[in-house]
Amino acid sequence: MESLTVTKLATSHATTSEGRELVKFCSLGVEIHAFFVPAAAELPGPVLIVSHGAGEFKENYLEMADHLSRRGISSLLLDMHGHGASGGRRYHVCIKEWVADLRAAIDYLETRDDVDPQQISGFGLSSGGTTILEAAVVEPRLHALVALDATVMNTLPLSITLSMSAMSGLGYIKRLLTGEDLRISIVKLLDEVELASDPEINARLRVDPGKVMAFKNFPLPGAAQAFFVSTIKRVSKIKAATLVIWGEDDHLDPVSTAHLLHEKLTCQKAIEIVAGNGHAGHLDRNRKQVFDLTANWLLKHRP
């Protein structure tokens, strides 16, 4: 993926009653919203930029950020382009834009006195995992990576692949004629694919208003990169120490993808398969194992 120019504009922040900061900065002319959760330890220190998955938002990572804070790690939780409170085309998943968001986040963090610029790392789930891996190919300022059930290639069944490809084609025609994407509902996927292994958490995800809204208004071709990427072809260029974490019960991106990703990486690397977790490992029953694996990796690879 080619390097992108990131627009730098004035940033703003405000501290909430929970002690986290609501941060705003600019990426490609769009306002990006984020939470900065400081470490409960002496600063400056390591900080983790968190990139969520398609149809998600930063609030899903607050429990992880609080856990990392107690381990001495700050977090910057992003609402990516088109998601949450950030600007951009609603629910689009354009990895170039998301990589720009990540690079703009690094620019922002480098302005803070409570962050060590040599200890900025990236964490991403699903399409967020795509983002941190693609960013690391072109961004030397990322010190370490944690890829959680990252989307690195198309793993959809052939029938769904053909259907999505056909609808993306129709979307391109509609965009050409009207300037707007085709909007479809993929809510059925929430019923057919268990995002979490824990039945209670999976049931909660199926009715989550934010996720349901995103899945009811899924734009094509605007969000096709939530499924159709070729990141696996470029991960050998990554130099940052990379931890691959995967849910053993992931039915969206199978565990075989985790092993292939780990095999293709040529940097310092490790792989952890978490039993009892599905695709949404940051929310699933063994999420605290994911949190601890993440913290241990970052602390192990401090410069």
Score class of each variant (00 low, 15 high):
Asn60Pro: 00
Tyr61Gly: 09
Leu62Trp: 09
Leu62Gln: 12
Glu63Ala: 14
Met64Gln: 14
Met64Arg: 06
Met64Asp: 03
Ala65Glu: 05
His67Asp: 15
His67Arg: 13
Arg71Cys: 11
Arg71Tyr: 00
Gly72Thr: 07
Gly72Val: 07
Leu76Phe: 06
Leu77Lys: 01
Asp79His: 08
Met80Thr: 14
Gly82Ile: 02
His83Gly: 09
His83Leu: 03
Gly84Ile: 01
Ser86Gly: 04
Gly87Ile: 08
Gly87Ala: 11
Tyr91Asn: 12
His92Trp: 15
Val93Ser: 12
Val93Met: 08
Cys94Arg: 14
Cys94Leu: 10
Cys94Glu: 11
Ile95Ser: 10
Glu97Lys: 12
Glu97Gly: 02
Trp98Asp: 10
Asp101Tyr: 02
Leu102Lys: 03
Leu102Asp: 03
Leu102Arg: 06
Leu102Gln: 13
Arg103Asn: 08
Ile106Cys: 00
Glu110Lys: 15
Glu110His: 08
Glu110Ser: 09
Asp114Ala: 08
Asp114Trp: 06
Asp114Pro: 01
Val115Leu: 01
Val115Gly: 01
Val115Cys: 06
Asp116Arg: 14
Asp116Met: 13
Gln118Lys: 13
Gln118Tyr: 09
Gln118Pro: 11
Gln119Arg: 15
Ile120Arg: 00
Ile120Tyr: 00
Ile120Pro: 03
Ile120Gln: 03
Gly122Cys: 09
Gly122Asp: 07
Phe123Tyr: 14
Leu125Arg: 11
Ser127Arg: 05
Thr130His: 04
Thr130Val: 05
Ile132Asn: 05
Ile132Gln: 03
Glu134Tyr: 10
Ala135Asn: 10
Val137Asn: 02
Glu139Ser: 12
Pro140Lys: 12
Pro140Tyr: 08
Arg141Leu: 11
Leu142Asp: 07
Leu142Ser: 01
His143Glu: 06
Ala144Met: 07
Ala144Tyr: 00
Leu148Glu: 12
Leu148Gln: 12
Ala150Lys: 08
Ala150Pro: 15
Val152His: 07
